[in-house]
Write a protein that binds this DNA or RNA. Structure first.
Lengths: 401, 401
DNA sequence: CGGACTTACTTTAGTCACGAACAAAGGGAC
DNA sequence: GTCCCTTTGTTCGTGACTAAAGTAAGTCCG
């Protein structure tokens, strides 16, 4: 009964995320035989962790019995760290997002980590139900997932052992998982979004930074030491402006929010004190120069992604991020440039734009934790293992109490 | 004893490819526990398929006993299909390459498949030892690995069921595996070359075409329907020359062999009837214009690969292909452009150039077959399964006979 | 209204691979 | 030499998972 099943957490998580399911559905979803699911569910049924809740009318055969969690109060806390603020949200396993906390943040300050830990701590103490862990998404590469060592030029962090610090400092011992914020988005998309219906999506984020995540066969490509997806620093112009990474001609230095705002100021489209949001307003209001700016950006992004798609061959393109609020301005030129530079038989690749508001990024980070029961490769390291045992134990104890 | 072990073929293949190994080495290499290896090897030992051949002096512990195949006459036939010819070579499991057959080929001819099958058939009948299968590498995407459906614009093939045809036509029933030629190279590199010592290499081929293969965590990224790696058709110039794919500004249309030769003719570096090899000669002879041509190509390739490396984050860059015979001409500008456009902490990525003569491509295709015993994901489909059983049965029968 | 067909589970018997403890076979320090 | 350490390999018991065959519970059709 006390077996540290690797499968039981995955089964529980499936019921938590996808809602009530029959045994057969579970078997297919988890890649197990029906026999195994019978065994597993019997244990969980007698333990009272799950229960038979309903039965669906049959479509020509024996009707299926739906299983569901008897106690679904389990979830994770998601954290998004950006250069100016921290967003923290509690997320239940079924995807329900709780009330968020936003705190000002100066990543360069000496007490930055302390502030981060404090902000998270409040939410940890107030969490309703079984807290499986804390997922943190940040703009940068996570060198060692197990220890949580972060390299994030955007934040000015290099070799910061963020994971270790949080684990030591949080008010209760709770698993902490870190990853690049675009990667967390990719995981969330895979679990809840459009990308989950495709085996090999290419996920692109536009906004302040430009990033991407490559998923192949349901597997996130993290690259050597977690540095994959730096789409923003792909060189696209020979003599482009200098980028904050130090190089010249980076995509981000041409179509990132700051770059667009800068160019708009140079061209007199917005005033010297104005920025991206004013540019958006002008363009939506019909200002030809502003519209042209987005057209240029769309072309550049389209061409760059065409190149990437030639090499990676995804089956869908998912666009999201802050920048998508004016996606209609990018779309025409983007689509044209993309299709024009793709091999003929790939031009029909679907493009999906998803709205993904600010706190959803944080919710995405929580998915990092909520996904770990499914993570068969152990990419989450020992922290992933901790999440799994917490899920099993947490739910079982909740029932016994 | 007749167990269709999934593991036994992998073990046999390890011994065939890597040579004699101790049980502990095998366990580590195959990701099995020592206990399991003991069980497996006992069966194979009593069956006489493998034997204890030697023992190595210890380094502070019990000395290891080396195991080896008692009958190593097993291998595959590799085929490389190019627009002008077919190269066929027999390859033994230890990597030894036999004598090659080269045949003229016109992929557009109505009897093209017939010619292909005939050329392979001769080698099949003459094969020395247990023939595990035939591996075919071709310039194009293999839509469905199991059925072997090929889309290859270079050959003018679209939806050709090459695999099915060969399986029906070859003189004996033998597994046939097909893949993109760069993918086969990647597999060969993974098994025998430098890339095998790195978990996430990016493999780039230069020559007539420009291609690449992305390997992540020992896994080849094949893309949706096998179309990944079309590096040659990444757009790199706004108003570049028209490419044979129909688009403009493709990398291949700027730095491929034909493009270089064309440009050399335009600039009067070689005569109107001369081509790439004359260009090589001029450049190696010190012709400034010719040298500059390679410099430009190196810069372009370097910049493009920098972009790709930002997104994919490989741990090594492996360059090979016909074009590498004059790699020294590309190298300086390539290296500079690459490093200049990489994020600072990635600039130290190692670059390895490997010599890979023409018939090695065919040998690479054979690796497709020789690798399938290790292919735990079953990417080779039922053909991979066939290869595994042939390996096991073939070697066992060879001993009994 | 009963048989043919479908689909959903369950039981059984067995395989595969592993962890843990143990045995074997050396090196090195004193 | 004689401990102790390191590394290799083996034995044994166990647990996870499965295939195959059986059972349950419905629909559909004549």
């Amino acid at each position: 009964m006390d077996a540290l099943d690797r499968r039981a957490p995955a089964l529980l998580a499936t019921l938590g995320v996808r809602g009530p399911q029959s045994r057969t559905q579970l078997a297919r979803g988890l890649g197990l035989s029906p026999a195994t699911v019978t065994q597993l569910t019997r244990q969980l049924l007698t333990a009272g962790v799950i229960g038979e809740v309903d039965s669906v009318p049959s479509r020509g055969g024996r009707p299926a019995t739906l299983l569901a969690l008897t106690n679904r109060r389990a979830g994770a806390i998601g954290v998004k760290v950006s250069p100016s603020r921290i967003t923290v949200v509690p997320v239940q396993m079924d995807g329900a997002v709780g009330e968020r906390t936003v705190a000002e943040f100066d990543p360069g300050a000496p007490e930055a980590l302390e502030v981060l830990a404090d902000t998270i701590a409040t939410q940890v103490q107030e969490f309703d139900g079984v807290l499986l862990g804390v997922g943190v998404g940040l703009p940068g590469a996570v060198d060692d997932q197990a220890r949580g060592v972060v390299d994030a030029p955007t934040l000015g962090w290099s070799g910061m052992a963020v994971g270790d610090y949080l684990r030591r400092t949080l008010p209760q011992p709770v698993p902490v998982l870190l990853d690049n914020d675009v990667n967390t988005l990719a995981v969330a998309e895979h679990m809840y979004g459009e990308a989950g219906r495709h085996p090999s999506p290419l996920i692109v984020t536009i906004g302040h930074g430009i990033g991407c995540a490559i998923v192949a066969g349901g597997r996130l490509h993290r690259g050597f030491r977690g540095g994959a997806g730096e789409l923003g620093h792909v060189p696209v112009a020979l003599d482009g402006p200098e980028c904050r990474c130090g190089n010249r001609g980076c995509l981000e230095a041409l179509v990132g929010d700051d770059a667009l705002a800068q160019r708009a100021r140079e061209r007199g489209i917005v005033g010297p004190q104005e920025g991206k949001s004013e540019l958006n307003d002008r363009a939506l209001g019909g200002h030809p120069g502003a519209i042209q700016l987005f057209e240029e950006a769309g072309t550049l992004l389209g061409r760059t992604l065409a190149g990437l798609a030639q090499v990676v061959d995804p089956d869908v393109l998912v666009i999201l991020g802050e920048g998508t609020d004016v996606w209609e301005l990018w779309r025409p030129s983007f689509t044209m440039a993309l299709r024009r530079h793709l091999l003929p038989d790939r031009r029909s690749i679907p493009i999906v734009m998803e709205d993904w508001p600010d706190d959803r990024w944080a919710a995405g980070a929580a998915s990092l934790v909520l996904f770990s029961p499914f993570d068969t490769d152990g990419l989450g390291g020992d922290q992933g293992e901790l999440v799994r045992t917490r899920l099993h134990r947490g739910l079982t104890e909740a029932v016994e109490a």
